[in-house]
């Protein structure tokens, strides 16, 4: 993307923040792939993904004027989306029998990297609580406090989930995936 495109995008964003509906529509269209990729990290069902995106657009439409600075927009929108995703995950998790959740396969220790990635991709179907919190913290840069507010859990619970998730990944994949 060149400097001219950046300027166009900034103008659209500024107009959207000022309540210009056409600009808001353009802005949301441009976020489509980002919203989809992010939602797919948290949700396994395509129906839930689209539902979460739809709810995010509506929530953003109502609250866009509360965004003070253009630089805040992406993180603000991400929080809305993650909240919508987590709601749907939590609802499904509450409906799911814990006994049905697949434990981390011990046999994966001998698997190739490619096989492990496949396993990981497959494990996305679990919507595991640890994975949710890991993504929020390490991938989407939310603070422990923000995650606690979003998920309705205590901060100590969030920290426990982060520790368990890190340990799980380290046992499984080897190495430390959280170092810079």
């Amino acid at each position: 993307m060149n400097a001219g495109d950046d300027l166009d995008n900034e103008l659209v964003l500024r107009r959207a923040l000022r309540g210009n509906r056409r600009a808001f529509a353009q802005l949301m269209q441009a976020q489509g792939d980002y919203l989809s990729r992010t939602a797919h990290l948290y949700l396994a069902s395509e129906t839930d993904v689209q539902d979460a995106i739809s709810a995010t657009v509506l929530a953003a439409m109502r609250g866009i004027k509360n965004v003070r600075e253009p630089a805040q927009f992406r993180s603000w929108l991400t929080r809305i989306l993650i909240r919508q995703c987590y709601q749907r995950y939590a609802q499904k998790a509450a409906e799911t029998d814990d006994a049905a959740l697949v434990a981390m396969p011990v046999a994966s220790r001998g698997a190739t990297s490619e096989e492990k990635l496949d396993l990981l991709a497959g494990l996305r179907q679990l919507n595991d609580a640890n994975r949710q919190v890991l993504l929020m913290y390490y991938y989407n840069d939310l603070s422990v406090r923000a995650i606690a507010e979003l998920t309705g859990q205590g901060e100590s619970t969030v920290k426990s989930q982060l520790r368990r998730g890190r340990r799980q990944l380290k046992e499984w994949l080897g190495g430390d995936y959280f170092e810079d």
């Binding site: 269209q29 689209q50 995106i53 739809s54 657009v57 509506l58």
Partner: peptide, 19 residues
Amino acid sequence: RPADSAQTQATIAAALHQG
């Protein structure tokens, strides 16, 4: 590029219309 890119665009458009 997500496989559901077109569907997502339709979802966004529908949500904007709804809004």
